[in-house]
Write a protein that binds this DNA or RNA. Structure first.
Lengths: 140, 140
DNA sequence: CAGTATCCCAGCAGATACTG
DNA sequence: CAGTATCTGCTGGGATACTG
């Protein structure tokens, strides 16, 4: 069953020097799977916001500038589905729902923090590269 | 100048416990900037493919299963623009163009490799979480 | 409070044909 | 070989109104 479980010659995409003749398949990449989740527009914002401890729906809505209610819900559901975030309902009135990172979520967050530090170190370099590229394009 | 340089109270999104009342802004996140590039559908595939050493356009096209010519071009241009990949034209006939990771690109690739290892460690966990979630949904 | 349900549009991405 | 140009369709995401 599970028809869509593609695997191209055991390739896991990174790392693995990639010998000539090798192919890489998007669907077979472990990173791709992560990035398809975490790369969605609001996911990191939610993860970051939940990293400090359990947080409620409306708090998230207030914390994350510019997110729509719909997108917050969708993002939460996806993260929950992947087991990165937990959802706890306190049966009070009015209802109280708390979202928190799971163990896996916490671990992921740590790797994202690494990426962030990298991003910060190279921020200006990248911005300069962009300007240079754009300038070169405009010149022609 | 540079009108679009938003910064919400010095927030860099990760890490930084995020005190109550804080807000996070997508546009002010360093990670977001990276992920907006690297999270695009084919970017990692290209990075991975170029990680083993300089590689030509057509080689990339053959290596990356399912990519269209147009998308390969666009992806390459974006990575080039950000200074993650370099483009070298050898003025021969027929033309020969080689793409290679830059220093920054190599470094990024290393962090992605970290992420990959994480993804591989938790792959089954995540798949199980998904199945469980879906099953629970279907049950109601 | 914590969501769903709808409507709708922009932009990403696929397919294909053409070119220096 | 290494692209660009064009057309088009799909879906991620915004705005908003309604509900248990």
């Amino acid at each position: 069953m599970e028809e869509g479980t593609f695997l191209s010659r055991g390739n896991t995409c990174v790392p693995g020097p990639l010998k000539p003749g090798d192919t890489v398949e998007r669907g077979a990449c472990a990173v791709t799977e992560v990035l398809d989740r975490v790369g969605s527009k609001w996911s990191i914002m939610v993860i970051v916001s939940a990293a400090a401890g359990p947080i409620r729906f409306t708090e998230l809505e207030r914390t994350i500038t510019g997110i729509s209610r719909r997108m917050l819900t969708l993002t939460l559901r996806n993260l929950e589905r992947d087991g990165l975030i937990s959802r706890t309902v306190h049966p009070t009135a009015p209802p109280k729902v708390e979202y928190a990172l799971t163990e896996v979520g916490v671990e992921l967050n740590e790797y994202l923090a690494q990426l962030t530090r990298w991003a910060e170190r190279h921020r200006t370099t990248i911005h300069q590269a962009r300007s240079a590229y754009d300038a070169a394009r405009a010149a022609r």
